[in-house]
Design a protein around this nucleic acid. Structure first.
Lengths: 110, 110
DNA sequence: TTGTTATTTCGATAATTATAAAAATATGGA
DNA sequence: TCCATATTTTTATAATTATCGAAATAACAA
């Protein structure tokens, strides 16, 4: 992973609304959640949420798919794991450190 | 962990210079590195680096200690692990997910 | 079609964050 | 004490990012 990607990913998470979205999606699993349903959880106007979803998607942390009139968003577990691994890379020169977490959802591909 | 702390921590990492500093410190282990030595690794003026170190320290991700004329900085592994855990909390409703990484340096307390 | 719902884009403004020169502080050595 | 080194604070400016109303697009249903 390049540092630019990591900075991009971190910046996309460094906002209360976006972090909330991401955590909701992490907890929702591979099915994802439609934008409108995310909107119900979060007290922001639709255009603001849309802006933030775009930020997360640009950073690669979430992925969207259209389904009829709904746009489903899901977390990219691959991107998340890559980021966590990058942060802990060569921790303490490898001494006495367990490796980075790996979240492997059972269902569809992450 | 509160969302405000997490956002603060993520924001402090979401910058090329700061992320580089953090990774250097993660790899350096519990001893830490003096500010001047960090400065040699990174192409930024001292005041700029100082500004960024303060940001990381404010967010709790790094800790400083004075030693003579030098100020040593080290990564807070506790803070890092708390952040990683927060990001992966209840991943996929707990199904088929391994837990968050834990970096436990052998030496001094993290 | 026409209407309704879901979501995004545009655009103007507000708020936040970064940069680095200059000055200040702090430590230890001569 | 005086000086050199290490680091931080101050300050002004520049750059980036966030907000949300209004308008636009897209999908489906009647």
């Amino acid at each position: 992973m390049e540092i630019y990607e990591a900075v991009h990913a971190l910046a996309s998470l460094a906002h209360e609304t976006r972090l909330s979205v991401f955590r909701l999606l992490v907890q929702a699993g591979p099915e994802g959640i439609p934008a409108g349903q995310l909107n119900e959880h979060l007290q922001v106007p639709a255009p603001t949420l849309s802006f933030h979803l775009k930020e997360l998607a640009n950073a690669g942390l979430i992925v969207s798919r259209q389904e009829g009139r709904f746009v489903y968003y899901r977390a990219s577990f691959d991107a998340m794991n890559a980021l966590l691994a990058y942060l802990t890379e060569n921790c303490c020169q490898g001494e006495a450190c367990t490796s980075a977490s790996i979240c492997k959802p059972k269902g569809k591909k992450s």
